[in-house]
Amino acid sequence: MARLLAKEKLGALIRGAMDKKYRVVGPAREHGIVLFGELSDPAALCLDELNTQNSVKEFFFPKTEPILKYALGKHDVALADDFAAPRTVLIGGRACDARSLVALDRLFGWDYKDKFYFARREATCVITLACDRFDEACFCTSLGFGPRAPEGSDVLLVPVEGDAYLVEVVTDKGGALVAELADIFTEGTPGAEKVAYPEKKFELAAIKPWLERNFEHPFWNEEFLACLGCGTCTYQCPACYCFDIVDEGDIHGGQRCKNWDSCQLALFTRHTSGHNPRPTQASRWRQRLSHKFAYYPGKFGYEACVGCGRCIRNCPVGLSILDKLVLIGREAAAAPAEPAGAQP
């Protein structure tokens, strides 16, 4: 026997969470695109698209956020910090979305523990849907996990035969929510799992060593000429976290904001002198790939990429990080690394 949720009960699950005063965030269609957003009605949940246009990160790390507010008095400065993290159920993300939270936890909790981010992490229960389909941009399996990986989720819903989900409780927080809404679930014998696994497309273990050896490889200048430098890939990436801090205010006061930023923009690294250590779009792409597949794993033992494919589907000039990883994988196989110690 296992715990099951009939597909038609997804709405009831959302309604139940709303009745228990949770804010519910899920995919909904808005202006022709499917975006994660706060649901005001369970019927707004839209599971037509494999992946939403935006990622879940904005519910933990918003695109803009005041980190403090200040008011200037005659002789003093008054600071205010009116931050709140509402109790939230995040439903309808994929295994890749959930995994991105684990990747972000590494960064935001590494030395300074980002209180805004972790307050939201703690207040949010993540209910993930395992995938019953994939498209050509999906590559979770190439990253060593897959469409029903539990990591980062509190509850995992796995589609099974018989129009139902098998309910896997992953964390205590997930268990508590399931217990709170117990009457929506049923007990039964689950049908066969309907989980679709994309084919593995490259050898992950070969990528980092290749990147570390080929900083000056002609590949960088040849493959990325078409890049417009629009940054869409980074803004839609669930695992990109770069931000900028700006003060916005006048003589009476203002606020200090933490805003998303992007390594794909020329301004990101431009010095006051005008010098830019990453002068070309090729050098910015090298940074993006190296950061995700060499520097981040080197520091945290974790890729800063989850294979969701958003950057590929939404690139205005059709550049695909997956294609480039496949190319790197081939290059690495053709010219394997020297044995350890042989390099200068």
Binding site: L228, G229, C230, G231, T232, W260, L265
Partner: peptide
Amino acid sequence: REFSRCIRCYACRQA
């Protein structure tokens, strides 16, 4: 309403 979704990535400018 339309501009409320802008994330200020400046993709419009770059394209």
